[in-house]
Design a protein around this nucleic acid. Structure first.
Length: 437
RNA sequence: GCGCCCAUCGUCUAUCGGACAGGACACCAGGUUUUCAUCCUGGUAAGCGGGGUUCGACUCCCCGUGGGCGCGCCA
């Protein structure tokens, strides 16, 4: 029989990065093995399960290309099956009823731990064992009649014929109990593989307070699904070679559980950004234009931009856009109300003689055709006249024209922005940013 | 507290008893670009500590230390 794995999230509205990585590993395993990747929505925690939360989950999975093979199973719809299993355990004496702790809430059903040690072989961590004395009886059905996670999870896995349970490290302790339930039910447990956790900058488990912990946030910031997928696949796993940028197809072919590490991995935003930049750079120009266009819609300075002009800006900026959010710095292409970086202004513009030099340059630029070549020639000429070494005038001009110290090639940028605007900005810099000579 | 797990450059990792411990991100330096970004080259940087086992340990074992997880009528 072919392998069957499942991703079994409890939808809360936001999909956590750690959770989605579990989904990715399950997906990769299934696709590598030619098995089935199934989805089960564990929506039994009534108060948090909403239609929106489930939709958000589907949306994220779809975005990342995590396609599943059969209709998703909703755990809430399987209550009868869970309860039937509990009844069976009850009649066979493997569980009992009790008002645990005399709460007055009524009787719940409690699984009776057999007095025996438990051992299972984890595909990643190796043999894991637990002494009988370290395990206690536990509730499987609440006094209000609702099945508890441990029971529901197992009964569903059995019915879905799950062969490998690939989940987070935080479930290791549960597994000892789960193995015992399987045994009580007379069913052979699946194989288990526990993935190391993802930790934050402080080396602590990722929490909601860390920011950047939901898939939606990465998407909103302009990370590409393929890049995030690639990056996450390499957290806690590596194929062993020197390559780190791998296509989904390659990842699928290379993936195996025995190369998953068992120590936790820290998320590195810089590295993700770098990887993402590589993916962005090789995007077809039109895809980039379309995506950047969607981002730019968020800024009033880009309303009503000319399509051709925008395409030209994109052509200039694509290779230096590591993440779409960088588009926020494109304002100077579209508006004269630019924001100046303080430090470069101080360093490059507030220099003795700069005011005069820029004024001379402005005067000359006013009389040329404003092609890339002529702009360059003019700057060179002014440098010579003003006794400035070659190339040293570029940065001051860049700051004056764009407000920033980095960007695309200066001449291309100026030519694109256009003569009129460049002159206005040069004028502003001369009057307001330069030091009096 | 008890139990289980984990431990290589700052970070992600390779190594599966014998190599100058390799790569990537970040960082630094140089080169290219008469500017910026890319790009190229080079560099800094690691086996938690202590015992064993062995001819030989990052690798195997034990003890510490540090960290994580679990010990719910949450999932």
């Amino acid at each position: 029989m072919s392998n069957r794995v499942r991703f079994a999230p409890s939808p809360t509205g936001h999909v956590h990065i750690g959770n989605i990585r579990v989904a990715i590993f399950n997906w990769l395993f299934a696709r590598h093995e030619g098995g089935k990747f199934l989805l089960r929505i564990e929506d039994t925690d009534r108060e948090r399960h909403t239609k929106e939360a489930v939709d958000a989950l589907f949306d994220v999975m779809n975005w990342l290309g995590l396609d599943y093979d059969e209709e998703p199973v909703f755990q809430s719809a399987r209550r009868d099956a869970h309860l039937a299993a509990a009844d069976r355990l009850l009649t066979e004496g493997k569980a009992y009823k009790e008002d645990k702790g005399n709460t007055g809430k009524g009787e719940c059903i409690i699984f009776r731990m057999p007095n025996e040690d438990v051992v299972f072989n984890d595909e990643i961590k190796g043999e894991l064992a637990k002494k009988a004395k370290d395990l206690q009886d536990f509730v499987i059905v609440r006094s209000d009649g609702a099945p508890v996670f441990h029971l529901a999870n197992i009964v569903d896995d059995i019915d879905m014929k799950i062969t490998h349970v690939i989940r987070g490290d935080d479930h290791v302790e549960n597994t000892f109990r789960h193995v015992l339930i399987y045994k009580a039910l007379g069913i052979k447990p699946p194989k288990y593989a526990h993935l190391p956790m993802i930790i934050n900058q402080q080396g602590k488990p990722y929490s909601k307070r860390d920011g950047d912990c939901f898939v939606g946030e990465f998407r909103a910031k302009g990370f590409l699904a393929d890049a995030l997928f690639n990056y996450l696949a390499f957290l806690g796993w590596s194929p062993g070679g020197d390559r780190e940028k791998l296509s989904r197809q390659e990842l699928m072919e290379l993936f195996s559980l025995d190369r998953v590490k068992s120590s936790p991995a820290q998320m590195d935003l810089k590295k993700l950004t770098h990887l993402n930049g590589q993916y962005v750079a090789e995007l077809p120009a039109n895809d980039f234009i379309a995506a950047a266009g969607r981002v730019v819609e968020n800024y009033e300075w880009a309303t009503g931009v000319d399509k051709d002009y925008f395409a030209k800006v994109c052509r200039l900026m694509q290779t230096r856009t590591h993440v779409y959010s960088f588009v926020k710095d494109w304002k100077y292409f579209f508006s004269d109300d630019i924001e100046y970086e303080e430090k470069p202004v101080r360093k490059m513009l507030k220099k003795p003689g700069m005011k005069t030099t820029l004024a001379v340059l402005r005067g000359k630029l006013d009389n040329i055709g404003f092609s890339e070549e002529s702009i360059e020639e003019t700057i060179r000429a002014v440098e010579k006249e003003s006794n400035i070494s070659e190339g040293k005038l570029n940065q001051p001009v860049r700051i004056a024209v764009t407000g920033m110290s980095t960007g695309a090639g200066l001449y291309e940028t100026m030519a694109l922005i256009g003569k009129a605007r460049c002159l206005v900005r040069l004028g502003y810099a001369i009057d307001h940013l330069c030091e009096e000579d």
